[in-house]
Amino acid sequence: MNRREAMSAVGWLLGGTLVGADLLVACTSKPAKVNELFDQDQVTMLDEVGETILPATSTPGAKAAQVGAFMAVMVQDCYKPEDQKVFLEGLKKLDEASDKKFGKQFMKLDAGQRTTLLTALDNEQKEYMQTKEPEQPSHYFRMMKELTLLGFFTSEVGATKALRYLPVPGKYEGCIDYKKGDRAWAT
């Protein structure tokens, strides 16, 4: 074996070791954790749920306000453990409902299918909320919908692009005329 053949063999061995290690790491890695309860895949899914509830039109949608990350923080920091459990199980139930209705997971649905599914879940949560006992937790989709609305309309995007916003509103005017089509006030 001459020097050139030896260098080629060493290159193949080292290259195979590096590629093999990268491939092994890629196959065994889990989605990055966002916080103690949520990983990045779940936050992405929540962004898509939010975008289906509040889609982008002439104003930005819920995804532009990053409602998925907002929901992850709110559920971890503000929800009781039993409500956290309902919310996290709700993500699984959402995928199960999607699989049952369309034969694929929520993230693989097109916009029309997502709207159909979430409309059905919204009707389900309305019925549940009318019959639930006060001590029972809310329906998981109701939690998602409420957090989407809260996250969007309290975000910079929602307050400045979807609502009218004056950072320094000036004097108080209690009675301002409203013209049809005007945006609501954020402040």
Rank of each mutant, 00 (worst) to 15 (best):
H139W: 06
R183Q: 03
A159W: 01
D99C: 07
R114S: 11
A6V: 15
Y165V: 11
Q42H: 04
G15I: 00
K179S: 14
M74E: 14
Y178D: 11
S58W: 05
V43S: 06
L37H: 11
S138K: 13
Q105M: 03
Q105F: 00
K33V: 13
A65C: 02
S8V: 08
R164A: 06
T28P: 08
F153P: 00
I53S: 00
L88Y: 04
N123K: 00
N2Y: 02
E48Q: 11
L46Y: 11
V25I: 12
V43D: 03
T131W: 07
E5W: 05
F70H: 08
L118F: 14
A9C: 07
P167M: 03
A6G: 03
G170W: 09
L13W: 06
T59Y: 03
F87D: 04
K145L: 00
N35T: 05
T119H: 15
V19K: 09
L121P: 00
D41S: 15
V43H: 08
L147M: 13
S8R: 10
G181E: 07
G15M: 04
A72K: 05
G170K: 10
G103L: 02
L37W: 06
V73A: 12
A6Q: 15
G15S: 05
H139C: 03
V157M: 00
T160C: 06
E82G: 05
R114N: 08
L24D: 01
E146Y: 08
V19F: 14
T131D: 02
F87E: 09
L149F: 10
E89R: 11
F102Y: 15
V86H: 11
E156R: 04
P60R: 01
C27D: 11
T131E: 04
V75L: 10
G174E: 12
D182W: 03
V86W: 09
F38T: 05
K80R: 14
D177A: 02
T17I: 13
Y128M: 07
L149G: 04
L109V: 02
Y140T: 01
N123E: 05
A26I: 09
A69W: 09
A65I: 08
E156S: 12
P167N: 12
Q125R: 03
